[in-house]
């Protein structure tokens, strides 16, 4: 997890497969954060979650919000975007654990229960994504197979 309030920063996470990249940004306080989570639920390994809450959606996302509040962000202004959650198998049927899909579903449940809606998302499919949060603008940039888009 990375948090910043410096306008010359660019927060980056590389090669999101089934993992999710989650950015939040407060355009007034100019505070933002980027979280890279791997698995949906901490219940599968509470010891690991205690040691590294950022691995799991259900423990990592609250930490992301809390860290941004600490840096001056306000919940009602935060803009949340999400990318990743791919199924990197050749076809979705052979991806029996469907971790990418489960990650996104867990995120949506957690956000719904905490009164947060997603502003933009690019999830699923079968390709890897690199995600950048540009602190000067709040833009979230995706790099997919050498192509760059703004989310």
């Amino acid at each position: 997890m990375k948090i910043s309030s410096r306008s010359d920063d660019i927060l980056i996470t590389y090669a999101l497969g089934s993992c999710l990249g989650i950015t939040i940004f407060d355009p007034i306080a100019k505070v933002g954060g980027l979280l890279h989570v791997m698995l949906p639920a901490s219940i599968v390994n509470p010891a690991k979650a205690a040691n590294n809450p950022y691995m799991f959606v259900d423990t990592g996302v609250p930490e992301l919000f809390k860290a941004c509040y600490k840096a001056g962000a306000k919940k009602e202004r935060l803009v949340l975007k999400v990318a990743g959650g791919a199924s990197l198998q050749n076809n979705e049927d052979s991806d029996q654990f469907q971790i990418g899909k489960r990650n996104f579903l867990m995120l949506r449940k957690l956000l719904w229960k905490n009164n947060v809606l997603i502003k933009a998302h690019d999830v699923g499919e079968n390709f890897s994504r690199t995600m950048l949060l540009e602190m000067s603008t709040g833009n979230v940039i995706l790099k997919i197979n050498n192509e760059t888009t703004i989310l």
Partner: peptide, 8 residues
């Protein structure tokens, strides 16, 4: 179940 119940 997925969309309404957020369950897999």
């Amino acid at each position: 179940f997925e969309e309404l119940g957020f369950i897999f």
